[in-house]
Design a protein around this nucleic acid. Structure first.
Lengths: 182, 182
DNA sequence: CTGAATGTAAAGCGATCGTTTTACATGCGC
DNA sequence: GCGCATGTAAAACGATCGCTTTACATTCAG
């Protein structure tokens, strides 16, 4: 298997478990058994690996979202996918937002990347809202997004049941929007 | 003025701007002009200062929430207070959750402190929900909490208007709960 | 005047940081 | 069998880390 992929997956687990800045390159590479030489050959720098991890993480989630189908319940499927993701990966808050917080004043590339990724995610939600409503509603889409980010954050201090509550809240908001346009 | 208070306030700004682990004690102390000697006299360690900053930050917000009154609109006042807070402090995500993410595998005291603080916050929301509804509704309270955390997170990548959208969503949920119990 | 309290300035502790470098092992196409 | 790509192992670079220590200045109550 590809060494580069191994390193990204192993580093993602390390960052997810203990943050990005609190560990050295040796600790990041140990789980994949890679040497520092290989790190700088593939990624150029420690921060290069961080960016690759964030790209991978975002792509992973967006792919799963696309694969989940959910044409029957486009909004509810959003939260079902989140719940399955959290069960598999553990709930430690959104890795992208955590990276943004840690690299705020230190690496603008990270901040810019996360912003772009969140915009892409919000567009996907808007697409699903239009699918559910029959017409676009950017305000509702942002509210669904807020519920999604809130559930992700809340699950890191409470239990996973918050995702189900967020899903139900989203349903109420969609129903309210439907009633308002009717 | 108290030097200890100065150090906490200055350190809070530093942590808020660039995370907790990515800067050394010299960088943390520089804005307050304190020496490392004074740091270890007052806080015992770098982590001791971190804990003091988190205590202060939580107490500040809870005090402002209590002072805001909001007996007329207990739930809406929650988001009005958040919006004023974000305008004053800037929107870089919840400092407590950010600290939890950075100290996850390194300092359990930080994780435990944040968990306690979030529980206290959720109880305050539950109190306000009961005030608005006339009876307790822990499910609704958690949903309001999710909207609150979501707005805080979303404001760090989008603009502050997300807080207003979260407030309106909370209003819809409260109205729905009122209709359901009627 | 004395002495305790509170502070800054600065040197130094061993450890660890991100990065580079040298040396060597392996597998594969030609 | 030669060359090249890809990998590990390990030493070393200067810089910085959290923390301790020594030395000295200021303030203020008794």
């Amino acid at each position: 298997m590809d060494k580069r992929t191994d390193m990204i997956a192993a580093a993602a687990r390390v960052f997810d478990a203990g943050g990005f800045r609190g560990i050295g390159v040796d600790g990041i590479l140990a789980p994949s058994g890679a040497s520092t030489r290989t790190l700088y050959k593939h990624f150029g720098s420690r921060d290069g690996l961080v960016l690759a991890v964030l790209e991978e993480r975002h792509r992973d989630f967006m792919d799963r979202l696309a694969r989940s189908g959910g044409d029957a319940d486009p909004i509810g499927g959003l939260f079902d996918t989140l719940e399955r993701w959290l069960v598999e990966h553990g709930a430690r808050g959104c890795m992208l937002l955590r990276a943004q917080g840690e690299y705020a004043g230190a690496n603008e590339d990270v901040v810019a990347l996360v912003r772009r990724q969140k915009e892409e995610f919000e567009r996907e939600i808007a697409r699903r809202v239009e699918m559910a409503l029959g017409s676009a509603d950017t305000g509702l889409a942002t509210q669904i997004w807020i519920l999604f980010e809130g559930a992700t954050a809340a699950a890191s201090v409470a239990d996973i049941s918050v995702v189900g509550l967020a899903k139900r809240a989203a349903g109420v908001l969609v129903e309210d929007a439907r009633g308002r346009s009717r």
